[in-house]
Every structure is written in C-alpha cells, then in structure tokens.
C-alpha cells in the first residue's frame, strides 16, 4: 500500500456515481428493449435491429462503467484481442447463417 489511496478510501461513498449511472443505464436499456418488443409497432426486422443496437450499448456500458476496459500497465493489447474476438464472432454467426440457409429440406 504505497499511497494515500487507502486512507482516503475509508471515506469513499458506498455507491459511487459512476457505477450507479452504469446500473441505471443498463436497466433503462433493458426495459427499452422490452417495451419495444411488446409494443408490436414495428416490423420484425426493424425491432430486431433496434434491439441489437440497444444490446451493443449495453455492452459498452458494462465495459466502460464496470470493467475498467481502458486500464492497462502498457499497450492496450486486450482491446485488440477483444476486438478481434468480436469480429470473428460476427463472422461465425453471420457466416453460418448465410451458409446454412440453403434450400434446406430438413425442418
């Protein structure tokens, strides 16, 4: 314990603003998706697209508000790693859907 952080820590709030805002945002995004899904106002494609966007925002909230995403003791290799992971994940998902929606006889 090399610095004054520990002492000042005793007076830190139980719930800091940043984390609270993160939580609030995640709840709002969730319920927005729910409301949109139950409202039946838009077409399936449009609803799914908006909900996916909301989900991506949720991810950003988790990464920024909770996961200390930008922290590192050197070059931020982990960001490159996760970006690659996300890219390959999208390739697997959309690639598989594209490949597998041939005239399938099996249903």
């Amino acid at each position: 314990m090399t610095n004054g952080r520990m002492q000042e820590g005793k007076h830190a709030p139980l719930i800091p603003m940043k984390n609270f805002v993160g939580y609030l945002l995640s709840l709002v995004l969730t319920f927005a998706a729910l409301a949109l899904g139950m409202a039946h106002v838009l077409s399936f494609g449009a609803v799914m697209l908006i909900m996916l966007l909301l989900a991506v925002l949720q991810v950003v909230v988790q990464l920024i508000f909770f996961m200390h995403f930008t922290e590192s003791d050197g070059p931020r290799y982990h960001i490159v790693g996760l970006a690659l992971g996300a890219f390959f994940a999208l390739c697997v998902i959309f690639g598989s859907i594209w490949i597998m929606t041939f005239n399938s006889q099996v249903h």
Binding site: F88, C91, I99, F102, N103
Partner: peptide, 20 residues
C-alpha cells in the same frame, strides 16, 4: 485474419447458394 474467412471451401459440394 483472412484464414478465418475461408472455411466453407471444404464443403462446396454441400450445395449452398452460388453466392456462398
């Protein structure tokens, strides 16, 4: 990176769409 994007060449004969 691109080696990840070529996998379906192992099953061209599956009969996926011409685009694939």
């Amino acid at each position: 990176v691109i080696n990840y994007l070529v996998w379906a060449h192992h099953f061209f004969t599956m009969g996926a769409s011409a685009g694939v």
